[in-house]
Nucleic acid binder design. Structure first.
Lengths: 338, 338
DNA sequence: CTGAAAGCGCTTACAG
DNA sequence: CTGAAAGCGCTTACAG
């Protein structure tokens, strides 16, 4: 309950220094001494005080995670990947959310909160030029960006722009000429992948010399309900889009729902609208939704790898993961009214 | 970057003790002294070392969260509620997952991991008689259980048994006599709410003097894919259930998908199967799924309240939240093949 | 291989 | 209201 290293030292008949060395498995301890100390420590159910070690060593044993929000599919997946990858390392995690619940007073800045608390930080989706990134860089600890890139900083991401372009290209290949867009927020935002996906959408249309009026774009808030609202608006536009690219699968589900309610078919049928998502969320197959599959858990795990590498003194690396186009009935099929 | 309290003391022309008092807003400091110290600290961009304070005070400033797993809708919602409620308190969070990724060697036990690291713990879904709970109780810190109850320990949960019973009762009220069940794991499990929901299912059937053969039950692993598999099996049974209660909405989505594939209608139509979920997940309306709505974010926030209460020296409280039956087309409607 | 001692950066009785 | 001093529980050169 309240044993400290001196108690163990006394019980084992050695000095606290030796206990410290033995318990951490250092090799400059006689084997028999080490085993004896370990046995005594276990018998007494001793646990070192992480706080004391941290103060003594100057290492916090903690990884900071800076994220715009918590909750939602993407974060949950990412975090699951991070947690799993962290298991072998006995590192604690400290999560800092940058986005305020609406109406809340602004809380501590990320770098102030993390200072002296973390040995490294995983930074999710923040813009390269944001002041958060600048502040964090000033901390002088290893940083790993997820979903954005900055020169000289480690990062793991997908190529949102190219991937979105490919998704829209798929719709163009099917013959569509009026391709709508359902984005998360009103663009541009502080969330990088979203801006990049917009750029990719525009790339594809421009390359095909197609118009891309803003009347084809609606905001879906990254929620299913928002996607439903957005699609309802698009359905009322004249002329209607014949295909819609949604920046997330969850918004696409809502879009499909709006179409179903309006009696509008999905895929290639007459008067139908082809719907394309992004993520390959676990329900994409259930909705028969064509989408771009991104390996979110792997991204989280790789982020941890890059952190550990830098903590080991290696150079920051940049990883860009490939995605995969998954074509399903929402673009290819001829399901009438789902 | 590396300033400590003595640097500030020197710069402000006072002692470290006074700096400490001033910065923490203690009232036994002259107002002008305090303001001066605060100004100097700010000018020098000083941040106290949490680790040093923790060692000196014996308080970790950290809340432990013990959970069987991370990821998935329930945990993400709960965690979002916890995070939001924690914002005003400057408490760090330390997450410990008890369930191993399959194949991993067992990691440290929860109470060993949390010992000396947290001031209190929020424990999610663990069985009252589990050894984890026993170990955590031995830590002598305030505990708040989420989703289970133990005498003398604070907790916040819903009444899973009664709520499941009500859900099944709804199906019985519609005239169903063969009501199937899709559970998460093979029951009984270490996850309390699940066992309670089974009990509630049996309660309703027993009260109506109906048989409840195990052939009406299948395991859906709490995933959409699992729910789809489970329903496929149930569809092949003779006689088929005419209604199915799923322990989570996500499994219900899979079940609906399996029915749609098999050409089986939903709701009250001829040869149709009524499907009932549990959660009121964000897509439940999209699927027109009848379900039991539980306020997951509120549960997380209340868990934090109960923690703070105990940290303030108040007695542990037990909170049981009401749920709400949401009837939609999956039980009442007559949608043929969705 | 082992130990005595200093130090990590705070907080808190205690004395004034 | 303020300060000197001890202490929180470790780790780590340094010396042997």
């Amino acid at each position: 309950m309240g044993l400290n290293i001196r108690d163990i030292a006394a019980a084992a008949g050695v000095s606290p220094a030796t206990v410290s060395r033995a318990l951490r498995g250092m090799d400059n301890v006689d084997v028999s001494t080490r085993e004896h100390v370990i046995a005594v420590a276990r018998a007494l159910d001793y646990a070192v005080s992480p706080v004391a070690s941290r103060l003594a060593t100057g290492r916090s044993g903690t990884l900071g995670i800076v994220t715009p929000y918590v909750g939602g599919w993407y974060f949950a997946e990412l975090f699951a990947g991070i947690e799993a990858a962290l298991k072998p390392f006995d590192l604690d995690v400290l999560i800092h959310t940058t986005e305020e619940p609406t109406g809340a007073r602004p809380s501590t800045e990320a770098h102030v909160r993390l200072r002296r608390r973390v040995d490294a930080a995983l930074v999710i989706g923040l813009a390269p030029d944001s002041k958060e990134i600048a502040g964090l860089a000033g901390l002088g600890i290893p940083l790993v960006l997820i979903g954005s890139q900055v020169d000289g900083v480690a990062s793991v991401s997908i190529d949102d722009r190219a991937d979105a372009c490919r998704a829209v290209q798929h719709l163009l290949d099917l013959g569509h000429r009026r391709v709508g867009l359902i984005s998360g927020r009103r663009l541009p935002t502080g969330f990088v992948p979203e801006n990049d996906r917009l750029a990719g959408y525009l790339d594809a249309l421009s390359a095909a010399h197609l118009a891309h009026p803003t009347s084809l774009r609606e905001v879906g808030e990254f929620t299913t309900a928002g996607g439903e609202r957005a699609m309802s608006v698009l359905l009322a536009r004249q002329p209607r889009p014949t295909a819609v690219f949604c920046m997330s699968d969850q918004m696409a589900y809502g879009a499909l729902r709006a179409m179903s309610r309006a009696g509008v078919g999905t895929g290639t049928g007459d008067g139908a609208i082809a719907v394309m998502g992004f993520d390959d969320h676990e329900l994409a197959t259930t909705f028969d939704l064509s989408t771009v599959a991104q390996p979110v858990r792997a991204i989280g795990a790789l982020g941890v790898d890059l952190v550990m590498e830098q903590l080991d003194g290696r150079q920051p690396r940049v990883i860009v993961l490939p995605t995969e186009l998954r074509v399903r009935a929402s673009t290819q099929g001829s399901v009438t009214n789902r």
